[in-house]
Write a protein that binds this DNA or RNA. Structure first.
Length: 751
DNA sequence: AAAGCGTTTATTTTT
DNA sequence: TAAACGCTTT
């Protein structure tokens, strides 16, 4: 690709962002401004035009998804010319460095990576070891505090310097014990991956120099989401050549609670005084009305680097405000709009997203979607790697890979049940303590120890079982050095008879399918030598939250949180719960900094939309078990009235529901003069057109458009309707209650 | 081990 | 409200 080709499709600031390759560059990229485009073109330019070897380039992203996206776009642009550049998440890049340089950096390269669940177990144990009652100190809260400290590169010693209260003292104490537990398990948590890399490189000049020499061009995506360690890392690596290009949008910084530090962007210009700052403000995604609304919302933030979006796109539809009585009606009105869109505006269900602040809000929506038979997809749910069966198998493999890993050992020691209950476990722990080792090592000592000695700690029965298990562990550990990943996987599964075990559990068949899916991931590492393949396999699954290959259900409305929506775009966006205490969330109301983050969240939501935005609110809603009346969100008032689609005058409502009575009396709207009161369109009261209402009874087989086939469990009258409980065959969905007149249930004959 | 019971608590989540 | 947790009981 020639230079002209590469640059011809870029606007002037984009072009500048691509061509300014010497020295530090800060790119402030608004939503939909072609950020990924700029990064990929910049890399292609470096390689194709300037002849930089890809080997000298590092591009860092936050999520695997972003890394994949970048990789595929880069390949489309520059082909295989760029294939050996370093492109990955911060964590993946750090793991590579740690495994490769581990010995020199004082790290055993055979470490395992602990995820949140493993971490929590260690923290709980640490709290107990510190002689504290876990009831008084939420392990989760302490873990977040530890994680926050690590994100700022603070050791327990350094943290203890800045203790301000009792809680901090507890954190320091637990952090110390937690740190040594990790070390004794030869494990690193996610924060360690970053912190140990930075500290290791800082302490080892020779290695640091090598990496500085290697990475002559560094690019960082989503820079507003970086924490201090991450910034330190790229600062360090770029110190020699100083070709560091960071791309981000402070207005889309919504992860401060995860230690993302907006100061990184602000300090960037201080740390690199010769920085070239480039603004990407032209938006290619949304209509003018949408951009106007989004800009109005974000402009109310005080602490902000000013940036003004503009677009050449058409004006488009106005923003629509939807006001409902409660969350149920809100859901119905959303569905009402959705059917109008899909019926007459050639919008597909998959083009639509419904965004919410908290996961709890999805419930009312889901119920309505089920009721009205609208296909939807809820992003949440249990992640693949969080499923019990997957965690079981991975724990076995981690234990095999890392003989010091007691957390994994304890997870699987009695799965499937092999008679190692609480009693036996306690005996093992006593024994471990007496020898000054962790459980895993204690177990491994059993086969070769004197039986007489062991009987001081163990009953004859426990000893027999533990010895057998210890021998099993040693056997599979040996096997791991001899056979490749897939064979190890298969032999393990058959040795522990996992299939029989899991199939006998509830939803066993599905769980077994998941195991097979994991097996197919293991298969991908079968080319590699035994130990190496296992290491690579474990690493890949530890650093990936979900298989996110499994998504992509055919044409369904997307239900997702505002946070999850970042980086995505949809033709049509609904934001529900546009109320005080919901968005902005009540936990942010009295903190100006957090309030600004809520506003950014709203901004992120609006800017996801290409053509239509609906802002929805309910007059009253059930929150934490009681009904609250909330004012409309202050963010609605930020948007100029002329961007809304209806006249701002009060109309008489047509219905006589409790809702319209409320509107007629106008009580609590008095204080909300800026919020228009609108004519309400009654929710669709007629059920959606029926296929045909079948006569059903328990035992019949039925088919549902979305859930597939299932068997009727019960049928009971409910008002004028009938409530049918169906057990569906499918993967995840099992039992649903459906209103007969709404669900499009089709009876399957001969049942 | 599993089931039953009272208690507590309730943003956002990737790696 | 309702889910998750820890405790006791079967």
């Amino acid at each position: 690709m020639t230079k002209t080709d590469l640059l011809s499709n870029l606007n002037p600031p984009q072009k500048k962002a691509v061509e300014t390759v010497d020295g530090p560059v800060l790119i402030l990229a608004g939503p939909g401004s072609g950020k990924t485009r700029v990064i990929t073109h910049r890399i292609a330019y470096l390689v194709g035009v300037l002849g930089v070897r890809p080997h000298h380039i590092m591009a860092v992203t936050f999520t695997n998804k972003a890394a994949r996206e970048m990789s595929s776009r880069l390949e489309a642009l520059a082909g295989s010319a760029v294939k050996d550049l370093t492109l990955g998440t911060f964590h993946a890049i750090c793991v590579r460095i740690l495994r490769r340089e581990g010995k020199e950096l004082g790290i055993n390269p055979g470490f395992t990576i602990y995820d949140g669940d493993d971490q929590l177990k260690l923290v709980k144990a640490a709290i107990k070891q510190a002689g504290l009652d876990p009831k008084n100190y939420t392990p989760g809260a302490i873990l977040s505090a530890i994680s926050a400290a690590k994100s700022e590169l603070l050791t327990p010693e350094e943290l203890s310097q800045r203790v301000t209260g009792h809680f901090d003292e507890v954190v320091v104490k637990v952090y110390e014990i937690y740190r040594s537990s990790l070390a004794r398990n030869n494990a690193l948590d996610f924060d360690d991956l970053l912190m140990k890399t930075v500290k290791g490189l800082a302490a080892n000049e020779a290695i640091l120099k090598r990496y500085q020499e290697k990475y002559r061009h560094i690019l960082v995506d989503e820079f507003q989401d970086t924490n201090l360690v991450q910034y330190e890392l790229v600062k360090m690596l770029s110190a020699k050549y100083r070709n560091i290009c960071v791309v981000g949008d402070p207005d889309q910084s919504i992860y401060s609670w995860r230690s993302a530090d907006i100061r990184n962007i602000l300090n960037f210009e201080k740390d690199f005084p010769d920085v070239t700052t480039i603004y990407l403000e032209q938006n290619y995604r949304s209509t003018r009305n949408i951009i106007g609304a989004a800009q109005a919302v974000i402009d109310s933030n005080k602490a902000r680097k000013k940036k003004t979006l503009w677009t050449e796109n058409e004006e488009g539809a106005r923003v629509k405000l939807i006001e409902a009585y409660d969350q149920q009606e809100e859901a119905r009105l959303v569905i009402n709009e959705i059917s109008k869109l899909t019926d007459s505006h050639a919008v597909k269900a998959g083009d639509i997203a419904v965004l919410f602040r908290t996961n709890a809000q999805s419930r009312a929506l889901e119920e309505a979607f089920v009721r009205y038979g609208i296909p939807y997809r809820l992003a949440a749910g249990t992640k693949f790697y969080e499923r019990r069966e997957i965690r079981d198998i991975l724990a076995y493999l981690k234990m095999i890979f890392n003989p010091a890993d007691s957390v994994s050992l304890l997870r699987v020691i009695n799965v499937p049940a092999r008679g190692i209950g609480r009693q036996t476990l306690e005996e093992l722990m006593h024994f471990a303590v007496s020898r000054g080792v962790k459980e895993a090592e204690a177990l491994s000592m059993i086969p070769s120890a004197e039986e007489a000695e062991l009987l001081e700690y163990f009953s004859l029965r426990s000893l027999k079982i533990l010895k057998a298990f210890a021998e099993f562990v040693i056997e599979v550990q040996k096997m791991a050095g001899e056979v490749r990943t897939l064979e190890l996987f298969d032999r393990l599964i058959s040795r522990i008879e996992y299939k029989n075990y899991i199939i006998s559990q509830p939803e066993g068949e599905d769980r077994w399918q998941n195991v097979l899916e994991l097996r197919s991931v293991a298969q991908q590492y079968n080319e590699l030598a035994p130990e190496e393949g296992l290491a690579a396999f474990l690493e890949s699954v530890s650093l990936v939250a979900d298989t996110d290959s499994l998504g992509e259900v055919a044409d369904s409305v997307n239900l997702i949180t505002l946070h999850q929506a970042k980086g995505l775009e949809f033709p049509v966006v609904f934001i529900v719960g546009m109320e005080e205490n919901v968005l902005p969330h009540y936990r942010s109301i009295d903190d100006p900094a957090q309030m600004e983050e809520e506003r950014r969240l709203c901004y992120v939501g609006i800017t996801r939309a290409k053509t239509r935005v609906y802002l929805c609110r309910a007059y009253r809603r059930m929150l934490m078990g009681n009904t609250q009346v909330n004012d409309p969100s202050r963010f609605i008032a930020d948007i100029p009235q002329e961007l809304f689609d209806e006249k701002q005058e009060v109309k008489q409502p047509r219905t006589t529901s409790a809702f319209s009575n409320y509107f007629r009396s106008g009580n609590s709207f008095g204080s909300e003069a800026s919020i228009p009161i609108k004519e309400k369109r009654p929710a669709r009261e007629e059920p959606l057109p029926l296929m045909e209402m079948p006569l059903l009874k328990a035992g019949n087989r039925v088919r549902h458009a979305q859930f597939g086939e299932g068997i009727v469990v019960s049928v009971k009258p409910s008002g004028t309707d009938q409530e049918v409980v169906v057990a569906f065959d499918g993967n995840d969905v099992q039992i649903k209650r459906l209103m007969l007149s709404f669900a499009r249930l089709e009876k399957i004959q001969n049942s």
